[in-house]
Design a protein around this nucleic acid. Structure first.
Length: 189
DNA sequence: CCCTGATTCGC
DNA sequence: GCGAATCAGG
């Protein structure tokens, strides 16, 4: 697969939305997360800085120390980042462009009458006992967004436990959320 | 061990 | 330009 303008656009969009490289790669298909990251860097939007002032300073020494051919050094750009943006408005309820909570059931997987691992189910109940019971506005990218209860009533909350990296749910809920197949032997590539 | 992004470098 | 291999953290 090549980086068509269209795909690049998707890449930019998703990256801008904070999607992980692997997520983007999966979405695009035909590319690995490495490819995505590589492209991101080539596009110069590796950093989240929208401004993207490419400090052209010193790529410098491309020297090849005999010791370590690879990974010579890691010159962290210790540039003092001038951020005009004062306050911290970065708390936008982004992340669910498609999965908007409409009148229906926003609950994506809610496995109820399905065949789920008994252990996983037990884990869910276990988790629900120690869940933090967050409201929708308290959710972040780092909190489990597993819904519990009836959204139509006030007896509705979200798990809120630490979410698995890149996933919208905590470990336990990820287990029951994504289990379309009995086993995923997808070793893409 | 899972994941994340970051970097290098052969192609 | 591309991306696998690798590195470095969480």
């Amino acid at each position: 697969m090549s980086w068509t303008d269209d795909r690049v656009e998707v890449l930019k969009k998703m990256w801008g939305e904070g999607k992980s490289a692997s997520q983007i790669a999966k979405e695009l298909g035909g590319v690995t997360r490495n490819a995505v990251i590589g492209k991101v860097h080539r596009l110069g939007l590796s950093n989240r800085s929208g401004g993207a002032s490419p400090a052209k300073s010193a790529p410098a020494a491309k020297a090849k120390p005999a010791a370590k051919p690879r990974v010579a050094e890691k010159p962290k750009t210790a540039e003092p980042e001038a951020k005009p943006a004062t306050s911290v408005p970065a708390n936008k309820p982004i992340g669910r462009p498609k999965l908007v909570v409409t009148a229906g059931q926003p609950l994506p997987p809610q496995p109820s009458a399905n065949e789920i691992s008994p252990e996983a189910l037990a884990s869910v109940r276990e988790v629900e006992k120690k869940a933090k019971r967050l409201s929708v506005m308290e959710l972040t990218e780092k909190t489990c967004k597993w819904p519990v209860g009836d959204p139509a009533t006030d007896d509705f909350w979200f798990c809120g436990l630490p979410a698995q990296a890149g996933k919208p749910y905590c470990e336990a809920h990820v287990g029951v959320a994504f289990q379309p197949m009995s086993s995923r032997r997808d070793r893409r590539r």
